[in-house]
Amino acid sequence: MQETPSCLRLGHLLLYSMSDSNTTDFTHPSTFILLGNPGLEAAHIWISIPICTIYTIAILGNFTILFIVKREPSLHGPKYYFLCMLAVTDLVLSTATMPKMLNIFWFNSREIDFNASLTQLYFIHCFFMTESGIFVAMAFDRYVAICHPLRHSTILTNLVVAKIGLAVMLRGGIVVLPSLLLARQWPYCRTNIIPHMHCKHMALVKLACANTHVSSYYGLFVVFCVTGLDVIFITISYIQILRAIFSLPTKDARLKTFGTCGSHLCAISAFYIPRLFSSLTSRFGQNMPLYFHILSANVYLLVPPMLNSIIYGMKTKEIRGRILQLITQKGTKIFY
């Protein structure tokens, strides 16, 4: 049986949306339609393999970190508490998008309820802001550990760590809330088709037939002021850390001390750079191909949760040692 060309399928969706808009009140549409990867429908199964692999590694890796930290009393400290917060955030961030994405790839299920789309939007952006705040907290932990090592346990007590975690979570929820409320009240009279794999804020902005300048400006404010401040705080922390490192007497001591920051630096690079690139291209990259926008949006949501678990699992000596110990014990039991 001959396969329908992707352009005709896309045209069918557009015609469906246009005809439906004549009879449906799009002020509050019942559903949105996620396009997925237009033009690549025939390759959806193949595309789903690496994406599913990334998600599986992220799930197993982050759960392993949580299990190791919970099991080992010697790891019950600020550094590993913040790492557990990061693992939980990564699990939520990736799981907020993956189930629907796999439904599109495997079952061509493109429809998503209006309220479900707003919930997905809120979780994605809320936990992105939360993760950004956790990276700031981890940078502060490294600053105190290196610059004020004798006061580390008195400054970052369990109560202080819990308060920081709660503050970071509340900040993420509150900062994203105005965007959600604005998106909920807009009229959507153009179409209900979202040209993405998930409900992205800027994608909804482009669908609304209302003045969305306030939302666009607020989104830029969040990117440059809130997330930008996080980057500034991290930079200031590392300037102080570098000053302390260069004051050490020997090269080996400098390398050993700086090595404790390696995992954090790799993680923040993998987190901020793709997100900033995706945010800027969605606003100013109108001439870029649609698949490029979809790819960049998926990269910043799926790749960092996988990389974080690998980076901290492999580069953190204490966690790596516990993982190897568990594998060795399991292998010994199986052998005997």
Rank of each mutant, 00 (worst) to 15 (best):
Val160Glu: 08
Asp230Arg: 00
Val226Ser: 01
Ala145Thr: 10
Ile236Asn: 06
Pro149Asp: 11
Thr212Ser: 05
Ala167His: 11
Asn192Cys: 09
Ala208Gln: 10
Ile234Ser: 00
Ile164Asn: 03
Ser237Tyr: 04
Ile236His: 04
Pro187Thr: 00
Thr212Glu: 01
Ile155Lys: 09
Phe233Asp: 00
Met197His: 09
Thr235Gly: 04
Gly219Arg: 00
Arg184Val: 06
Met197Leu: 15
Gly172Ile: 04
Asn211Ser: 04
Gly228Ile: 01
Arg171Phe: 13
Phe221Lys: 04
Thr235Leu: 04
Val214Trp: 09
Asp230Leu: 01
Leu229Cys: 13
Cys209Ala: 13
Ala167Glu: 11
Leu220Ala: 13
Leu166Gly: 07
Ala145Asp: 07
Ala210Val: 02
Ala162Thr: 11
Arg184Ser: 14
Leu166Ser: 08
Val168Cys: 06
Val214Asp: 07
Ala145Gly: 08
Trp186Tyr: 15
Arg190Phe: 10
Thr157Ser: 14
Cys225Ile: 09
His198Tyr: 14
Leu204Glu: 02
Ala183Tyr: 02
Cys189Glu: 12
Ile193Thr: 08
Ile236Tyr: 05
Ala203Lys: 02
Ile155Phe: 08
Ala167Pro: 09
Ile194Trp: 04
Ile232Trp: 07
Val160Asn: 09
Asn211Val: 02
Ser237Met: 10
Cys189Phe: 10
Pro187Asn: 07
Gly228Val: 00
Ile193Trp: 06
Val214Gly: 10
Leu207Arg: 03
Leu180Met: 14
His148Tyr: 10
Val214Asn: 07
Leu150Asp: 15
Pro195Asp: 13
Cys189Ala: 13
Tyr238Thr: 09
Pro178Asp: 06
Val205Glu: 05
Leu204Ser: 05
Thr212Val: 12
Asn192His: 13
Val231Gln: 01
Val214Pro: 06
Leu180Trp: 13
Val175Gly: 02
Gly165His: 07
Gly228Ser: 06
Ile164Thr: 10
Val176Lys: 02
Ala208Glu: 08
Ala210Ser: 14
Thr235His: 00
Met197Val: 14
His196Tyr: 10
Leu170Met: 15
Thr157Ile: 12
Leu170Phe: 14
Asp230Ile: 00
Pro195Ile: 06
Phe224Arg: 11
Gln185Glu: 11
Leu156Cys: 01
Ser153Pro: 08
Ile155Glu: 08
Leu181Trp: 02
His213Glu: 13
Ile193Arg: 08
Gly165Ile: 05
Ala162Gly: 08
Ala162Leu: 14
Ile236Met: 09
Leu204His: 06
Thr154Ala: 08
Arg151Glu: 15
Asn211Glu: 06
Gly165Asn: 09
Thr227Glu: 04
Ser153Asp: 15
Leu159Cys: 11
Cys147Val: 15
Val168Glu: 01
Ile232Ala: 12
Pro195His: 11
Leu170Cys: 15
Arg171Cys: 14
Pro178Phe: 03
Tyr217Gly: 13
Cys225Pro: 01
Val222Leu: 04
His152Phe: 12
Val168Tyr: 03
